[in-house]
Design a protein around this nucleic acid. Structure first.
Lengths: 344, 344
DNA sequence: ACCTGCACTGCAAACGGTTGCAGTATGTTT
DNA sequence: AAACATACTGCAACCGTTTGCAGTGCAGGT
């Protein structure tokens, strides 16, 4: 059916080994022969059988990408970066969606690992131990999470949180609330820590943790009422969706953003610039994170693993309309009366 | 390094062929032997080498998925469906992002085809001929586009457009505009046709084509002014992003939605229920489209290709707040004065 | 003239499975 | 008791490529 090295060998009048060498290590064969072989190969439309090639070489020329949910734009962007960089390096990408199911994650990754040279894993959940275990079984790069002794690529959540906090402080806010995300999320724990650390840095601040919310619109709605009750003049939300839900609820309750309360989110999702007021947020270059994780994996495959630390992708604070100067504490407007009345 | 059938054979005291059969065609070997082999395999942590297996079988157990842009949520959802169904059927998924570049698309698909049993292709652009050509070279299923003689899975754009139109007519609208998408887009051409067909179905209607717009927020902003000028009381937008941009512009110009103008979009993207008013739109089950395309591909691989026609995924009209009864033509309110003044 | 080194090429053995065929030991039929 | 079918197992070839090793011919050095 398909044309093989033997066909080429027969037609070009050489041995199969010469054909193989002419095609994969051209330097080893005489220029004339090489040209003849390559020409016949081209004419016959030869395409090497990758299974055969990989069988001898032991490599597969592919990497695996494991994500919890492909429908989440975060992972879509990641995948794009991974795909682009892998292709440029001559690797194909196998993709697997764990559907957020930690229990099957290990099996999926192990299954995948038999057909790839290494894997890139996004696993916000799952235990450190299980990830360490996997990392010992195969070349593995962990994304958006840090686990001891596992090569990982992350955003600097602490620093990005600080930059949002600095922005709000500069605008004169004193009572600032944080509407957290899922308790099990690594990035949320980073933000909670950074939030607490801000207390050290700015002792004059009045910090309120509103609790943990689902990282979606309705979670923000829920947080909205608590935010009003807290009496905070600024709220940092776990992500943009929460921020948008929060903002919607505040408007519904008759408060103005940023007049009464400033709101900031994280991720810079497309919605953040479509809502009114547009949302102040932090942009994390997700495509670049995908690219960098491929680089890290390929280096590991070449036997020169990066250090675990220091692989942090830069972020950017995007200031838009949802944050403004804090309303003076003394001159309480009717709407803020509501807030302070409820805030106790 | 890795454990092979030979290791198992040696330890279990049988031949490699028996090992192979005990593992892949259990019916052919004695129950006791089979148990012993399977047990040793399990104990040694045996995992078959897929390259070796595929080399003999000629199959690869993988399918390819080719999309123009992984960052686009449409394809993310698709990919999720593809991935899930493929995994369930024992297939792995290779993914490739063409970056909307038609010129390399063919090469990417051909390269991919060497490592997979078949491909699922989303290619809104590219010529019919090039797709037909590819389809003859390998098992191929085309998604969201119809090309003669190529197996394809689509949404019924005509019917979904009709349902939006019917909804608006029922609300009493007479002058209805369509804000189109890219001229080269297959789905847009389907909608334009359906728009024209509505003229036949409802001769009393007054239909206005506003032109072609970029399928993004700013395209909608652009369309907004034209919509006002057109004097239409209802606008159907190419997709939700255009609809949202349009709505934003209308509000900016002092018109109310749906008070003065009703707006409907397509796709039911997350934003559509976050904007105010929430957007009437058409939901296309994209994950299901992914699943169905895998089914079609697998059937083709088994030699029982589906017919080209009839593979249409059901849609659902989602009526929300952005569409309402048409304002009576006679009683013009101040805000509509603006519109009719400009509408000429 | 002889040996050495070099550039090139071919042989054949891998890689790790699958599978057609033949062989052996049982059970079944007449 | 002989002939035969049946159930299981092993041998060895094969899938298409890579690669260590040996062989060839030819140039240059002595």
């Amino acid at each position: 059916m398909a044309v093989t090295v033997r066909d080429i060998a027969r037609i070009a009048g050489v041995s199969v080994s010469t054909v193989s060498r002419a095609l994969s290590s051209p330097g080893m064969v005489n220029a004339a022969t090489r040209a003849r072989v390559q020409e016949t190969a081209r004419k016959l439309g030869y395409a090497p059988n990758l299974n055969a090639r990989n069988l001898t070489s032991g490599r597969s020329g592919a990497i695996g990408l494991v994500v919890p949910d492909l429908e989440n734009p975060f992972f879509g962007s990641m995948a794009k970066g991974v795909q682009a960089r892998a292709r440029a390096a001559g690797y194909a990408v196998f993709i697997a969606d764990t559907e957020e199911d930690v229990s099957v994650e290990g099996e999926i990754i192990r299954g995948l690992s038999r057909q790839v040279d290494g894997v890139i894993v996004c696993s916000a959940r799952g235990t450190d131990a299980s990830i360490q275990q996997l990392s010992q079984e195969m070349p593995l790069v962990l994304v958006n999470r840090r686990v001891p002794d596992v090569s990982s690529i992350t955003f600097d959540h602490a620093a990005s949180f600080q930059s949002v906090m600095g922005h709000l402080v500069a605008l004169g806010h004193h009572r600032i609330a944080y509407a957290g995300g899922p308790q099990t999320s690594w990035s949320n724990s980073q933000r909670v820590q950074a939030f607490a650390a801000s207390g050290q840095e700015f002792p004059e601040l009045d910090l309120v943790e509103l609790g943990n919310f689902q990282p979606v619109f309705t979670g923000g709605v829920h947080a909205g009422d608590l935010a009003i009750a807290s009496g905070a003049t600024a709220v940092i939300a776990f992500n943009d969706l929460v921020a948008v839900g929060l903002m919607d609820r505040l408007k519904q309750r008759g408060l103005s953003v940023p007049g009464d309360i400033s709101i900031a989110g994280f991720d810079n999702v497309p919605i953040s610039m479509l809502v009114r007021p547009t949302l102040t947020t932090v942009d994390f270059p997700r495509v670049q994170m995908g690219r960098t994780s491929v680089d890290a994996l390929l280096e590991a495959l070449r036997g020169t693993p990066r250090t675990t630390e220091g692989n942090e992708i830069p972020f950017e604070l995007v200031v838009r309309e949802s944050t403004g100067v804090a309303k003076p504490r003394s001159a309480a407007s009717p709407s803020s009366t509501t807030a302070s009345a409820l805030g106790g």
